[in-house]
Design a protein around this nucleic acid. Structure first.
Lengths: 146, 146
DNA sequence: CAATATAGTAAATTTCGTTTACCGTGTTAG
DNA sequence: CTAACACGGTAAACGAAATTTACTATATTG
């Protein structure tokens, strides 16, 4: 019985940390020095534009209060706005500002570049298969929250 | 140009969240109710036994001070001990207690079970390939810390 | 229309990690 | 040999990030 074999949990976390580090470093280099790590959860794919705070909270796997704090600071920093939903007096809709869109584009470019490197490293076909498996496995878990 | 395609960052993070949730839920069910989420970084594969605090810090990608706080609370809770290193008067060695070993085994069983489900879901061969790719990609990043 | 559910907010608290600063031990260069 | 430096660990203060608890206002349902 071999227990020296690394387990998916650790592997997934470590590999995600690689992406995260690249995004953070790239954003700093691009001048987005006011973005904190937690903000990435909001700006990351597929971005918050047009969504409700509570939808974003569920998507990020955190409470709506926590998400609202993130949105509050992102609003203070000028990346997003929260406008009233015309169709539902209780709700708000997140709108990404021009500045926010620029940050999102920057993140997307950074990740695209990394994906390119990875595709070269292990082969485009294998990498595509890898992403496809990831997507399938993620959907194993119904994201019920709060 | 299709920008509707999910990117690795989000995928990795979401999939890791699935594992994390399973571990937390399983630990609670098994009675380890005093373990906090951050403790998993220490107890997760391959476990801290015989290692130095600073080694664990580097492995977890955090400062040695942060790791020491985790180790301190895990010691208070009876999961580990820190004993002096006989060969180096400055260093300490982490020793997992019986209780700690039980928690580690529990985590390992939970992840093994999930891996089994995943292997069934997508096929054992594809899953093995998936893990292999993960391992390769993780090593893209040299883990230099502190 | 009353009861309940939903969306969001606010404040306090806890958890988590970094920063700054330090002590003691080991290693190395002169 | 010993002075300088590197290394492992620790402590306290702080900052970041998320939860818990509690509440308001609007929608929906019976």
């Amino acid at each position: 019985m071999n227990s020296r074999e690394p387990m998916v949990g650790a592997l997934l976390h470590a590999t995600w940390a690689v992406v995260r580090a690249r995004i953070s470093a790239g954003l700093m280099r691009a001048g987005f020095t006011d973005l904190l790590p937690a903000h990435l959860m909001v700006l990351q794919y597929p971005g918050p534009d047009g969504e409700r705070p509570s939808t974003l909270a569920r998507r990020a796997g955190m409470s709506k209060q926590a998400m609202n704090q993130l949105l509050g600071s992102l609003e203070d920093l000028g990346y997003i706005q929260r406008v009233p939903d015309e169709l539902d007096g209780r709700a708000r809709i997140v709108r990404v500002t021009g500045h926010g869109a620029l940050a999102i584009t920057t993140i997307r470019d950074i990740v695209t570049e990394l994906e390119g490197e990875w595709a070269v490293a292990i082969g485009a076909a294998r990498f595509a298969e890898f992403k496809s498996v990831l997507e399938t496995l993620r959907q194993t878990q119904p994201d019920i929250m709060d």
